[in-house]
């Protein structure tokens, strides 16, 4: 929540997350450079650093792009999403090391400005085999830089969520550019099929996961609640909602999270005000619905964040009839208090 800005709101989970990330990156770079030295003794230190950093950045970007759909397919992956922005910053930093060393190695010894040389040395845009792949990598790096530089909530608030989200969805453009950078660059001169297979496999996994998750979400979006109880819609069985958790239903195209807690039912919008995280995949912690992405919290009966925070989401009226939760499809204004529906032993509203 955002009443003040700090560089990083550290907590134990974030520290563990970043330590694992750092250990993984250091191990990868170390193993790559040691093995590279052993297998290719003629390779220079600069070449090994360029390849190690570039491949680590490319691999991390794949992991980042897989986390979103994995979380939608299986909630056990949600801890990976918690501090994904640090993964993004690490991806940019590794890419920057790759880019800077590459420019020094290949473009700094001529009589042109290295950046001018990078952007103008090869203009063979009509040939796939000789395409100026370095420009593609540079373009991707610029996008990753903009994303890393604006990853803080300060920028989310000041750029406004639509602009910020548009900027961060450019990651798909960066990914496409990097696939071009690798395919039209490294793979053009690489004789071993292993790298081509690995790149193709990564591409299949990323696209397959996203299409799989989108297909599953589409089914949920198109599901129609049963309108059998006047203006209220039949949403789900009370028994199907885990304690202090939610069941998510789609009502008129938008998702509603129905929470069960302390013998009561409350329904709020499924969309977190922070980064549109899925509130229904979170839990009730300390009496508040807690977003699984970044921990934003809302009171289930009002949809409002506890003071001093100001975020609010829409609430919905509910009833319980014959063990089924009925929900009024008309959302109330964000932050509107709705008395929670108590659950009787007979499965009716109290």
């Amino acid at each position: 929540m955002s009443h003040q800005y700090v560089a990083v709101g550290w907590n134990r989970q974030k520290r563990v997350y970043d330590l694992v990330l750092l250990a993984g990156i250091v191990s990868y770079l170390g193993i790559f450079i040691v093995l590279g030295n052993l297998l290719f003794p003629f390779a220079t230190a600069e070449a090994l650093i360029i390849r190690a950093a570039g491949s680590a950045s490319f691999l991390l970007l794949h992991i980042i792009l897989c986390i979103g759909p994995l979380c939608r397919l299986d909630s056990r992956f949600l801890p990976l999403l918690y501090n994904r922005r640090h993964l993004g910053v690490a991806t940019f930093l590794l890419g920057a090391v790759h880019g800077v060393f590459g420019i020094i190695q290949f473009h700094s010894l001529g009589d042109k400005n290295p950046l001018v040389s990078l952007l103008t040395a090869n203009r063979n845009f009509s040939s796939l085999a000789e395409f100026p792949f370095q420009q593609l990598g540079f373009f991707a790096l610029v996008i990753l830089f903009l994303m890393a530089a604006t990853s803080h909530d300060f920028w989310l608030r000041n750029l406004t969520p639509p602009v910020w989200k548009f900027l961060h969805m450019m990651v798909y453009v960066a990914y496409a550019s990097l696939i071009g950078h690798v395919t039209l660059g490294l793979l053009q001169s690489e004789r071993s099929p292993l790298l081509a297979i690995a790149t193709g496999l990564g591409l299949i996994i990323v696209i397959g996961l996203h299409i799989g998750a989108a297909s599953r979400e589409n089914k949920l979006d198109s599901a129609k609640p049963d309108p059998t109880h006047a203006e209220f819609l039949d949403a789900c069985a009370v028994a199907s909602i885990p304690e202090k958790c939610a069941t998510v239903v789609s009502i008129r195209g938008e998702r509603v999270a129905i929470f069960k807690y302390d013998g009561k039912i409350s329904a709020i919008s499924n969309v977190c005000r922070h980064q549109n995280g899925p509130l229904g995949e979170g839990k009730i912690i300390d009496g508040c619905v807690t977003c699984p992405w970044h921990g934003y919290q809302y009171l289930p009966e009002t949809g409002a964040s506890p003071p001093p925070f100001t975020e609010k989401v829409a609430t919905f009226k509910t009833r319980i009839v014959d063990g089924r939760v009925l929900i009024d499809p008309n959302p109330l204004a964000p932050g509107t208090r709705v008395e929670p529906t108590a659950i009787s032993k007979e499965g009716r509203s109290v």
């Binding site: 796939l128 085999a129 496409a176 395919t183 793979l187 081509a196 591409l203 696209i207 989108a214």
Partner: peptide, 20 residues
């Protein structure tokens, strides 16, 4: 986005390999 990428990226990837 993924409808477009799901077509464009495999085409780019395979085209790039064939052009080697």
């Amino acid at each position: 986005i993924f409808f477009v990428l799901g077509i464009a990226l495999p085409v780019l990837f395979i085209g790039g390999l064939l052009a080697r």
